[in-house]
């Protein structure tokens, strides 16, 4: 318990350091752009493919349940709302933690084990500004973009299953959706959620990497911990954010 609190505290300290050093790393914008490539662009494949399949499966399931109640036209609404509000941000964040989060932890952990971070410090270059902050911002920027892509592709996948395959009416599919999905309350809240997940996931990955004992065993353990902690944080934060968004 004490250990958890200690980790939370030093995680916050790292967060503050990143914020303070961000000005310095923004002057070298290509560092952040490079990291967006590694965290965002390279995660696109897994995000798009999973989004597509999640949308298809969801449409299939929803269609058969809704047909029992005589309203298969609602497939589009249920699909869009569940993907935009929940699955988009949450599944994207979980995949991101597995794909990009572990990569960040392993990379930072190995740089530390290899004394690269120490070497940088001795060259009067701040590792926080040079290595950590660009990765942080790349994660925070990539996550909402990936989540929005996931939602869009998911809805398209659902459309392909519902309309041509299951025979839901094309017009009803979209118009029911448009009547129910609100831009501010659903789409913007979804973006806000994924932003928060982006901060949490990237911070956890960076902290675990930074905190990892400089050994092979330490780094592998830290990588595992990144996935576990990120997943729990995402699901916990999702509940808090959802309840805030639904009550306000």
């Amino acid at each position: 318990m004490i250990d958890r609190l200690w980790r939370l505290g030093s995680g916050m300290r790292l967060f503050m350091l990143i914020i303070v050093s961000s000005g310095e790393s923004f002057r070298r914008l290509h560092l952040t752009i490079r990291e967006i490539y590694f965290t965002g662009v390279l995660s696109m494949q897994i995000i798009l493919v999973s989004g597509f399949f999640v949308g298809m499966v969801l449409a299939l399931q929803m269609f058969y349940v809704l047909r029992q109640f005589g309203s298969p036209d609602y497939t589009g609404v249920v699909l869009a709302l569940s993907i935009i509000r929940e699955l988009g941000p949450v599944v994207t964040a979980l995949l991101f933690a597995g794909r990009a989060g572990t990569a960040i932890t392993a990379e930072i952990g190995l740089m530390k084990a290899n004394e690269e971070l120490s070497a940088m410090e001795m060259m009067a270059v701040s590792p926080i500004a040079r290595v950590v902050a660009p990765r942080f911002w790349a994660g925070v920027i990539s996550m909402p973009i990936l989540a929005v892509m996931f939602s869009m592709v998911g809805i398209l996948g659902g459309y392909l299953v519902a309309v041509p395959m299951l025979g839901v009416d094309d017009g009803a599919f979209w118009s029911q959706m448009q009547a129910q999905v609100d831009f501010r309350f659903d789409i913007l809240n979804s973006v806000i959620k994924s932003l928060v997940f982006g901060v949490a996931c990237t911070m956890i990955a960076l902290f675990e990497g930074f905190d990892a004992p400089p050994t092979a065993e330490g780094v592998s353990y830290a990588t595992t911990r990144t996935v576990v902690t990120s997943s729990l944080a995402i699901l916990g934060l999702d509940f808090i954010l959802t309840s805030l968004m639904l009550t306000v």
Partner: peptide, 16 residues
């Protein structure tokens, strides 16, 4: 692509 997806969501799925 991200901006296009957001735009697509807002126009096609949302009530914007």
């Amino acid at each position: 692509l991200g901006v296009a997806a957001l735009f697509g969501l807002a126009m096609k799925a949302g009530n914007l």
